[in-house]
């Protein structure tokens, strides 16, 4: 019990501190790196619960792919500290507040529906084997799984369409320049 408590405690502190660093860092790159830290701490939780597959996917997808793209975009746009929060985005604060409240209620709803006790006992449950997970994807969750791939395809095509502009005078297609992107 002692060692388990210690490891969960460390991971918990890292995740929470990382989350606070995401919020309070004015530097975009540091904020993104703090988010990576949160993702890694969450993956640590999953690993320690015995849910190795979820943990590995957490690192590969979030820490390894999404956050690298975030960082890549930040670097390409060369966003330094002074450029956070353009004035015309200030109205977004209210949207953000509404979304944050809604998310809080979603979490509260989740915990009240499924119960905190059951979440804790997930640790004791044996982790499903890789084969079980993959056959679930191919049977029980087939439709959501396929829909996800369609969604990704739409996103890729959308990115290409948004990246290209049609010049009405010459009829030429050209890639959007960073002047317009910013």
């Amino acid at each position: 019990m002692g060692a388990q408590f210690l490891i969960y405690g460390i991971l918990y502190v890292v995740a929470v501190v990382g989350g606070l660093m995401v919020l309070f860092n004015r530097d975009t790159v540091k904020s993104a790196m703090s988010l990576v830290l949160v993702m890694l701490a969450l993956a640590g939780h999953y690993f320690y619960m015995g849910q190795e597959f979820v943990g590995a996917i957490q690192i590969i997808v979030y820490a390894g792919a999404i956050m690298v793209l975030f960082l890549f975009v930040i670097m390409l746009l060369n966003m330094r500290e002074r450029e956070v929060m353009p004035w015309y985005l200030r109205s977004s604060r209210y949207t953000g507040a509404v979304l944050a409240l809604a998310f809080f209620f979603l979490i509260a709803f989740g915990i009240s529906t499924f119960g905190a006790v059951e979440v804790a006992s997930a640790t004791a449950r044996p982790a499903p084997s890789n084969n079980e997970i993959f056959s679930m994807l191919m049977t029980k969750y087939l439709v959501p799984f396929l829909l996800t791939s369609v969604l990704l395809l739409v996103a890729v095509i959308g990115a290409v369409v948004m990246g290209r502009r049609h010049d009405p005078e010459t009829g030429e297609e050209y890639l959007i320049d960073d002047e317009e992107m910013a």
Binding site: E52, A56, I60, V68
Partner: peptide
């Protein structure tokens, strides 16, 4: 010797980008 084996390797290589980028 985790069961996810090779996925763990990919997890680590995908995190390796940060050092050079940063």
């Amino acid at each position: 010797n985790p069961n996810i084996g090779i996925l763990y390797v990919f997890a680590m290589t995908s995190v390796a980008v940060y050092g050079i980028t940063l």
